[in-house]
């Protein structure tokens, strides 16, 4: 899997690279407009992370360029602009997702997963891991071929965890994933604990191994 990170803030590009390093991704980065244009013409990527404010040009133009060549690359806009107009415009031109800065790396990882999953032609929209099978289209989960009934939030959490396996996820990152921008308004995210407790219990009841562990002092981890 190839990922292109178009981001002028080198630190951020480096962080994204090292966060995704544990997965089977090949990350390249471009930190200015010309570089980015050159790279998208030379290669095909499974997913392109696109910052809108770049030295030398506007990220929106890069997006137009990608789309005008009918490339199949998935595009996620990562922007500090966080304006509705940019979001609407970006999605209208053909971006697959939009993530406003600052974001949690785990959230970005989950979005990349989701975009790549949707782009794969042979995909049946299922995620499989040992005894667990997740259908992201019908939003159903089976453990050992037996269906587990989860609430929407529990389902979202499970997909999020599986997409970020072996990573420590903070309560804030989980809350932000579940509530989006609203999580930003609160300091207390204790509700996450209730959802995780329920998810854990339901998986355990279905005979699933205990992948979901608590990391004391920092958060939770899907450990395999």
């Amino acid at each position: 899997m190839k990922i292109l990170i178009i981001e002028d803030e080198k630190e951020l590009a480096r962080d994204i690279k090292s966060f995704l390093a544990s997965e089977d991704y090949l990350c390249e980065s471009a930190n200015n407009y010309a570089d980015a244009i050159e790279k998208i013409h030379l290669h095909d990527y499974d997913c392109i992370l696109l910052d809108l404010m770049l030295p030398g040009g506007d990220g929106i133009d890069i997006l137009k360029e990608i789309k005008s060549h009918h490339k199949q690359d998935g595009v996620i806009i990562i922007s500090a602009k966080d304006s509705i107009e940019d979001k609407v415009l970006g999605l209208k031109i053909g971006a697959d997702d939009y993530l406003a800065k600052p974001f949690h790396q785990s959230e970005l990882a989950a979005r990349i997963h989701s975009v790549i999953r949707r782009k794969q032609f042979d995909s049946t929209n299922t995620i499989e891991q040992d005894e667990i099978r997740i259908d992201t289209l019908s939003k159903t989960v089976t453990v050992n071929d037996q269906q587990v009934i989860l609430t929407k939030k529990e389902f979202d959490l499970l997909v999020f965890f599986v997409g970020n396996k072996n990573r420590v996820l903070s309560k804030e990152a989980l809350a932000e994933h579940l509530s989006g921008d609203i999580a930003d308004m609160f300091d207390n995210h204790d509700f996450v604990y209730a959802h995780i407790k329920n998810l854990k219990r339901k998986l355990k009841d279905a005979g699933c191994a205990n992948y979901l562990t608590t990391v004391y002092g920092s958060g939770y981890k899907w450990k395999i």
Binding site: F19, A80, D82, K101, P102, F103, H104, V168, S170, G219
Partner: peptide
């Protein structure tokens, strides 16, 4: 706007540190 990028970097560093 200018503050957004350093905040984003800090946030991502903390995510990495946690790992």
């Amino acid at each position: 706007h200018e503050l957004q990028t350093p905040i984003a970097v800090l946030k991502s560093k903390l995510d990495l540190l946690l790992q």
